[in-house]
Design a binder for these strands. Structure first.
Length: 155
DNA sequence: GCCAACGTTGGC
DNA sequence: GCCAACGTTGGC
């Protein structure tokens, strides 16, 4: 099975790429995905896959580095935590609705790639991130797009 | 803060 | 099954 590539969005005010660098083992669980399409993509992730770490709701919004999937999808415990903003009262513990993966810090880009700059790239014309109205927080990235992004980042 | 795009909910 | 109302995401 060939390595797959992904893009993960995070609001830096909640959890930034630097926060991941400072996390124990430079690893975190990717909790809080509450969208079925995004969840289905989490389920397809394989250990060793890589993802672009993207800062949404930032100024400017930007791709800032890479992470590696180090644990494949497992139930997101926060869905059963009444105090969590990710609590989902209608999820059945016998058949958990929401999943998460673990990701590990990979490499920072030599420079952040802002959303406007990404939009200028012809090689990225069809990238999900750049589609009008795209809101998915977990997105597939083609190998071609992956290479184009890393080349642009000078990585 | 505004608002477009999208997903979900729930009445019918 | 339709669709209006509502909530969320996220760029600007």
């Amino acid at each position: 099975m060939a390595k797959q590539y992904w893009l993960l969005k995070s609001e830096p005010r909640s959890f930034s790429f630097d926060d991941l660098a400072r996390s124990p083992k430079r690893t975190t669980c990717w909790e809080g995905v509450r969208n079925y399409q995004a969840r289905n993509l989490l389920r397809e992730m394989k250990k060793g896959d890589e993802a672009i770490f993207y800062h949404s709701n930032a100024s400017p919004p930007a791709a800032v580095g890479t992470v590696t999937i180090v644990r494949e999808a497992y139930p997101d415990a926060y869905q059963f935590d009444r105090k969590s903003r990710y609590h989902d009262a209608s999820s059945d513990p016998e058949n958990p609705r929401w999943l998460m993966v673990d990701v590990q810090y990979g490499a920072p880009f030599a420079r952040a790639l802002s959303l406007p700059e990404l939009r200028e790239q012809r090689a990225l014309a069809k990238m999900e991130l750049l589609r009008k109205g795209s809101r998915l927080s977990v997105q597939p990235v083609t190998p071609k797009e992956w290479r184009a992004v890393l080349r642009l980042a000078g990585s």
